[in-house]
């Protein structure tokens, strides 16, 4: 029994008359402290999986357990509480509060947590000790994503979920962000799940899960994941 366990997850969207199946029976498990990359082409259902895992969406059927808790049974407030306390989320478009400074954006997340980390420390950790007082609009994309990561980390979640975190970033910045995520995983023993369509990134993960057409088409373990710096794409 893994730290994170998904079994027979299906998700069917009803678009009027049409039924679209996003997940068609996904099974995988992740161990605590692993750096996981879920990879697959557009429309394969990876974001759906992440949303279900992150408590932003519920599966049509199947079981999701995180740290022994049956997340699929959560509804409403319980689900929010799960997101609030157990999940850190990093978005493709950062989704920072535009009228809060970097520090305030982090603190925003902290004010709703039970055991938050120190915001300044986390920001220093992500390399933004100089830009703490800046508003998102005053930061570059990478810096904004760092703030987003810091915001997710500071909550001290059980899972850090990242949806195409480098999708809107250039190569160098993207690499730096991935490094930050990898380092966070290693240093803090945080379970990190990253979604990407870029298969080139797979070597840096402990575990790689391939998804295609709503099913897990393959899963592999890297016993020796490569540092990000060494990966080229």
């Amino acid at each position: 029994m893994g730290y994170v366990e998904l079994s027979k997850i299906t998700k069917i969207y009803h678009m009027g008359e049409v039924e679209i199946s996003a997940c068609d029976g996904i099974d995988f498990s992740v161990e605590k402290g692993e750096f996981v990359i879920i990879v697959g082409p557009s429309g394969a259902g990876k974001t759906t999986v992440l949303n279900i895992l992150g408590g932003m969406d519920t599966a049509t059927s199947g079981r999701v357990t995180v740290d022994g808790a049956a997340v699929d049974e959560y509804r409403g407030k319980k689900l929010i509480q799960y997101r609030r306390e157990d999940i850190g989320f990093v978005f493709q478009f950062y989704n920072l509060m535009q009228n809060l400074t970097a520090l305030e954006n982090v603190e925003l997340a902290l004010q709703i947590c039970r055991e938050p980390l120190d915001a300044r420390e986390v920001l220093t950790e992500v390399g933004l000790e100089e830009r703490m007082a800046n508003f998102p609009a005053q930061l570059s994309g990478g810096e904004q994503q760092r703030v987003a990561i810091a915001r997710a980390l500071a909550k001290n979640p059980k899972l850090l979920l990242c949806d195409e975190p480098t999708g809107a970033l250039d190569y160098v910045t993207g690499k730096a962000i991935l490094k930050l995520l990898q380092d966070t995983c290693r240093k803090r023993g945080m379970t990190v799940v990253v979604i990407t369509h870029n298969t080139a990134l797979t070597p840096m993960a402990d575990r790689v899960i391939h998804i295609r057409n709503g099913r897990v088409s393959g899963m592999e373990m890297n016993d020796h994941p490569m540092p990000v710096e060494d990966i080229e794409w």
Binding site: G54, M56, K77, I80, Q81, Y82, R83, R84, E85, I87, F89, F91, N95, L96, M97, Q98, L108, A109, I112, R151, K155
Partner: peptide
Amino acid sequence: KRELATLKVLGFYDNE
């Protein structure tokens, strides 16, 4: 909408 959605994802309760 976006801001509000973000807050939701961050785990803010509905009333919050």
